[in-house]
Amino acid sequence: MRLNSLFIFFLISFLFGCSENKIQHSKDFIFGTLIDIKIYGESKVIAENVSNEIFNEFHRLHKLLHPWEKSLITDINNAISKKQPIPINNDEVINILKNTQYLEKKTKNLFNPSIGKLITLWGFHSDFYDNEVIPNQEKILKLVSSNPSMRSIEIVNGILKSNNENVQIDLGGYAKGYALDQAKKILLKNNVKNALINIGGNILASGKHGERNWLVGIQNPRKPNALATISLDPGWTIGTSGDYQRYYIINNKRYSHLINPKTGYPDNKTQSATILLPPSKNSGVHSDVFSKPLFLADKKNKAAMAKALNIGYFLIILDDNSILISESLNKKINWEEEIEKKIITIL
């Protein structure tokens, strides 16, 4: 008996050892990535309901915009490849497509969601991209020289037409950012002020974590830990394009899913590009879209590209582990690791 009571005592103290928390945390896997929602200072019921509403919205978008499983986008792609016009009875998608046309121009074609064929060729149109073969160079160059562009698409009275049958829409670099903007609306509608939403590296910091700002870790692209942390002011958004998430390695060379639309090859001169954007209606989309041109642009053009896109806060890690950082972000950032001063260039 003595033993039993002692054992139960320890069991109870063990079970109740965990402390209570003001943060409600939920996770889901959508868009082929982890979605992580933290809500601060709301009751468990409210936090759960709002998180679920956000997850449901993401599932809807995922089904609507999926680049290779049957969706409105794959229907459009099929019609384009058959040179047939297709009616789109969906204003949301029409607006998204028109927006991508504008963004493609603005990023000097470095954001190009019409290169679905190239992405398929490189094997990234699959959840398990394990057939790791470098595609035939001729095929790549043929696709690149056919100049796929969102601007070859015309939408008149809800009818979509493209004069380039090599256009295959892949909103992989847009959908997560768009989802972030949708989540922002859901938080506002439910009057939830303090939340941190992370969609595969595109992060919205709404409000604060109690008395302090939300803290976001910046991934070291080659190590399993954070390189630095940044305190995000309320409403700010962060977006990263990195070669460490979807990639494969053949003969010690890394091939990531970030394919340069101008060359048809994955860029391997940059490891990651991270941008911070102030609160605005489209900050989610912009955080997703604008990190790509900063990742893909030549080293000497990166700063000019940031300026053209009006990005004041950026951090770029190059293939030799050296770091390019904007002056304003350098003031804000906390390095987690000992970083040698000489590898940092402040722009």
């Binding site: 976001v216 870790g217 998430q245």
Partner: peptide, 13 residues
């Protein structure tokens, strides 16, 4: 499996 050292609320994985 290893966990991340947590000095932050989330990370841009």
């Amino acid at each position: 499996i290893i966990g991340a050292k947590k000095g932050y609320d989330t990370i841009n994985y």
